[in-house]
Design a protein around this nucleic acid. Structure first.
Lengths: 222, 222
DNA sequence: GCATACAATATTGTCGACAATAATGACAGC
DNA sequence: GCTGTCATTATTGTCGACAATATTGTATGC
């Protein structure tokens, strides 16, 4: 892979943020990124624009790009909206799922299980988001896919920022439970399982008092 | 106004689409746009990227940018999701509105009324979207504002594509009704009025059979 | 010694030139 | 006269150079 596309670079940065290698507030210099990915500054700027739109970085004019620093309120809002959107997705899914799609999802969950067994963090993160993205795409509403992509990005950042352990331990069991209810054609239970899943993820965040992401040195030293 | 910012250019193009001067499918050549707005191609490309993310234009690699052509399904989906999102906004608003904010909204609706009386299409479109954007921002959830902006853009395109008359006759009366219920602290009635408002707008679209936007000459001549 | 002004450096913002690709038109062969 | 091929033109994609701005370092006056 010689020349990376903007999307590929964006994914790499997203993964670095989700893996907590890039922490909220960190500076993202254009020339550095360009060197790292062996590309031009122009492309890096394009990528940073995409990431800003997805809420992963903030860009200050004439200052530069930084990994975004979501607030506790942001975290709550995102999960709140996400519960609503995932609900709509499942609503739409019941009419649209056939054996073939169920099988596709099943294979995906299987991959998640393997990645978990291997403790392959990068794959775990990618596949975990991919599960929800796949459901949104099967709902066959263009905008829901776009929206879900956005929500997954922001959720990844929030998880990285507020989670206690470095481990991304949202195992595939809950995904499989949702899948099983979908297979059984039981939308209510699928909805319930999804709600439970999202609440579980949110509960594991430290949203109470201590925040992980000092906004500035001032906050850090006060 | 000598040099326009990317946002200003994007707004101008959005307005042209909403006013039906730019129709779905129309080609948007970079050099032409650059000349029209007295700017560089680089900036135009930046703007086109923004508009693509908002769903207003589609970009085909090595082909160029075109005004997006929403399908009937897209239209239904957008309004479906929009109803849900506007509902969440109103939910959050009840706890957050004070006299000052109510007054701000009231003044906005007043402006809408004036624009309507003057039959100033451009102002009508801007203010009509601005009403919903204002509510979303008062809900104080960053992501809801971003989301609403997106939904408003796409709704404008859909309205332009599927509406019978050229007139943008979503008058300020329904906005005022929502405002009144909010002022009275009656969330249920506000929700009801919003639902009615959005359904009214959607009902006025020709989403049944005939579509306004031929995807290609083949469709047009078959 | 401290603060302020100024210079040097680093970083981002903007643009125009060139390369790559697609669309169009001309021409030759049949 | 029609079709396929090639050349021409038009348009988009990419990049590096330069300008504008912010940051850091240095010196100077008090």
């Amino acid at each position: 892979m010689d020349t990376l596309t903007a999307e590929q670079i964006a994914e790499r940065i997203w993964l670095s943020i989700a893996e907590r290698r890039l922490r909220p507030g960190m500076r993202l210099k254009e020339t550095e990124l360009a060197e790292v990915f062996g590309t031009s500054r122009a492309r890096v700027r394009q990528v940073l624009g995409m990431l800003e739109r997805e809420g992963l970085v903030t860009i200050e004019v004439n200052k530069g790009a930084f990994v975004a620093e979501p607030s506790v309120e942001d975290a709550r809002d995102i999960f709140h909206i996400r519960r609503a959107v995932e609900g709509r997705v499942l609503e739409r899914l019941v009419d649209r799922l056939d054996k073939k799609k169920i099988e596709t999802i099943r294979r995906h969950v299987e991959k998640e299980r393997i990645a978990n067994a291997d403790n392959d963090q990068r794959q775990i993160i990618k596949l975990s988001g991919g599960f929800h993205q796949m459901l949104a795409e099967m709902a066959e509403a263009e905008f829901l896919s776009v929206l879900m992509r956005d929500l997954i990005s922001r959720s990844s950042l929030i998880t990285a920022a507020f989670r206690d352990s470095a481990k991304y331990n949202c195992g595939p069991d809950e995904h499989e439970e949702i899948l099983n209810h979908l297979r059984d054609g039981d939308p209510e239970k699928a909805q319930e399982a999804m709600r439970h899943h999202l609440e579980h993820v949110e509960k594991e965040l430290r949203l109470a008092a201590g925040r992980d992401t000092p906004r500035s040195l001032k906050d850090l030293l006060s």
